[in-house]
C-alpha cells in the first residue's frame, strides 16, 4: 500500500461568479402598473387618473374562479365606454391570484382572469388589438396579510392604460 495511482480524470467543472454590477431598486416597482407623473388629473375625464378613480381600473374574483360578477361587469361596462371614448389609449390587462396556490397554477389562473376581462371588453365593443393580457399569478399582491380580507383584494384583474401620456 505505497503511494497513489491516478486511475481516473474527472470532468472539468465551471463555476459562475457573481454579478458585481449594482442592483437596481428591484422588480417590485409600480404595483398599479402605471408610472407616476403620467396619470394626469382626476378632474380630466380623459386622464389615466380619472380612469383609475372614477371608472375603476380593477375587478375582483372569488377563490379559484375567473367568472365575472355582476359588480365586475358593471365596472367593465364603464371601462368599455371609456376606452371607446378615448381611442388613443391601449391597455394591458393584468390577472392576479392570491397566495393560496402554487406558482404555476396561479399563473394559469391569472391568465384566465385577465382573458375573461379582455373578452368582455371586446364583446362590449373595444378593439381587440388595443388590449393585451399578462398574468402575474401570485407575484404581485397589493395586500400582504394572510387572511381573506387581503386575499379578496389580491384576486383581481387590473386594466392598465398606456399611451396618450400627455393626457
Amino acid at each position: 500500500m505505497t503511494g497513489f495511482r491516478i486511475t481516473a480524470l474527472a470532468a472539468v467543472v465551471v463555476l459562475v461568479a457573481a454579478c458585481t454590477s449594482p442592483l437596481n431598486d428591484g422588480n417590485a416597482v409600480d404595483l398599479n402598473g402605471t408610472g407616476a407623473g403620467a396619470l394626469g388629473s382626476v378632474s380630466d375625464p380623459t386622464s389615466i387618473a380619472y380612469f383609475q378613480e372614477a371608472i375603476g381600473d380593477r375587478i375582483l374574483f372569488t377563490v379559484d374562479q375567473s367568472t365575472l360578477s355582476d359588480e365586475a361587469r358593471a365596472v367593465l361596462d364603464a371601462q368599455a365606454v371609456w376606452l371607446m371614448q378615448n381611442p388613443e389609449y391601449s391597455a394591458v390587462i393584468e390577472g392576479h391570484a392570491d397566495e393560496q396556490g402554487t406558482t404555476d397554477y396561479n399563473l394559469a389562473l391569472g391568465a384566465r382572469r385577465a382573458n375573461a376581462v379582455r373578452e368582455y371588453l371586446v364583446l362590449r365593443g373595444v378593439a381587440g388589438n388595443r388590449l393585451k393580457v399578462v398574468s402575474y399569478g401570485k407575484e404581485r399582491p397589493v395586500e400582504v396579510c394572510s387572511e381573506e380580507s387581503c386575499y379578496a383584494r389580491n384576486r383581481r384583474a387590473v386594466t392598465v392604460l398606456s399611451g396618450a401620456l400627455t393626457g
Partner: peptide, 19 residues
C-alpha cells in the same frame, strides 16, 4: 455586469494495492 469563470479539475486517484 462583470463575471468570471473558474475552472476546477478534479483528479481522482486510487490506491493500487487494494484491488
Amino acid at each position: 455586469m462583470k463575471w468570471f469563470v473558474l475552472a476546477l479539475t478534479v483528479l481522482v486517484a486510487m490506491f493500487a494495492s487494494f484491488a
